[in-house]
């Protein structure tokens, strides 16, 4: 197997060891700890008062626009990283290209800002 793939295999091992370690400790805990569920204990915690309504209550998700903006800028990062590693080769040409790219994105941010969607109301 190539070194490249082995590196990714190591990552898999790291995920596995995290799960094994956690399961081991949870397993020890399962032997040691008491288990006496009562109706009161299993109730959702609402500062000691009986819970009102369903736990999955309706709440306003405010960051819908933020999520959209996030996707825009994250995709931008995907483009910038390869460019950043090769900047030395591209020189002035690459600099101007990326300047235009970042400027267009900044325009997007300014537009969102002017529209007032960057406020968490």
């Amino acid at each position: 197997m190539s070194d490249f793939l082995r590196d990714y295999l190591t990552v898999v091992w790291f995920a596995v060891i995290a799960l094994v370690l956690a399961s081991l400790l949870l397993g020890i805990a399962a032997v040691v700890r008491p288990n006496k569920p009562t109706a009161q204990k299993l109730m959702a915690y609402e500062s000691g008062v009986n819970p009102v309504g369903d736990g999955w209550s309706q709440s306003q998700v405010r960051y819908y626009i933020f999520a959209l903006l996030f996707v825009v800028f994250d995709v931008e990062a995907v483009f910038i990283f390869p460019w950043a590693t090769q900047l030395e080769r591209y020189g002035t040409f690459g600099l101007i290209e990326m300047g235009i790219f970042v400027f267009v994105l900044l325009l997007g941010l300014v537009y969102a800002w002017r529209k007032g969607v960057l406020r968490w109301v």
């Binding site: 959702a44 915690y45 369903d54 996030f70």
Partner: peptide, 26 residues
């Protein structure tokens, strides 16, 4: 968790982690 505090906390956390991931990447 089916708990209102947890729900609000989770949504807030998601909003915050998304917002601050960008400056970190950049």
């Amino acid at each position: 968790s089916a708990n209102k505090y947890s729900l609000l906390g989770g949504l807030r956390a998601a909003g915050q982690l998304i917002a601050y991931e960008l400056p970190m990447v950049l």
